[in-house]
């Protein structure tokens, strides 16, 4: 008996070709963790993850398909391929005895949305109050979208952003992006 997962935004997608290409799409699920650990133990945790956990809030580290963004003084949001999930959970379970921490699986809590194109930052600027354009590529943070939905925003490259949002808020974020994408399409 196989149970099939159901993605909240499955089948959705926005693709504009004018004035500049812009695509907004739900991204494939990954294993996602909220990691809380004493920042002094960052090295031990990095060893388990196979990725150097960044030390400054807002910094993002990439290693292959693994990503970690530092959200708070002792908080990291980590995404890894689903295939790596069990190994990472086992590794942290083994670490717990020497270094207590909290690793919580939040894979199904979040939905990831990718926004790519020259006007990606402009799209976000309708929903986000800080200066999105001033975000360095390779940085990320938690913030609030449209004053209503808390998100984690990553800027992977100058023209590429990723929003991670709780699934019950994802429809709102999606509808909002649809409306703003129309403004971009009309070039106004």
């Amino acid at each position: 008996m196989t149970m099939h997962p159901h993605h909240p935004l499955s089948g959705e997608g926005i693709a504009l070709h004018k004035p500049f290409p812009l695509t907004i799409r739900p991204l494939a699920d990954k294993a996602r963790f909220s990691l809380r650990i004493d920042p002094d133990q960052r090295i031990a945790a990095s060893a388990v993850l196979g990725l150097n956990l960044p030390g400054n809030i807002g910094d993002v580290a990439y290693a292959g398909e693994k990503t970690a963004v530092c959200l708070g003084p002792d908080e990291w949001y980590v995404t890894v391929p689903v295939a790596d999930q069990a190994e990472i959970e086992a590794g942290f379970a083994a670490l717990y005895a020497q270094q207590p921490h909290s690793l919580v699986d939040v894979s199904h809590r979040e939905v990831s949305i990718g926004i790519e194109g020259r006007d990606a930052a402009l799209v976000l600027q309708s929903a986000i109050a800080f200066d999105v354009d001033a975000m360095a590529p390779g940085s990320g943070c938690r913030t609030i979208f449209d004053g209503k939905a808390q998100i984690i925003l990553l800027r992977d490259a100058k023209d590429r952003f990723q929003i991670d949002v709780w699934h019950s808020f994802s429809e709102h974020v999606w509808h909002f992006l649809q409306v703003v994408a129309r403004e971009i399409e009309l070039d106004i």
Binding site: R36, P100, S102, V104, V106, R109, W166, H167
Partner: peptide, 12 residues
């Protein structure tokens, strides 16, 4: 206190 809190409302 060595304890951490994580919202899992939408995980489950």
């Amino acid at each position: 206190l060595k304890v951490w809190l994580t919202s899992t409302t939408e995980q489950w």
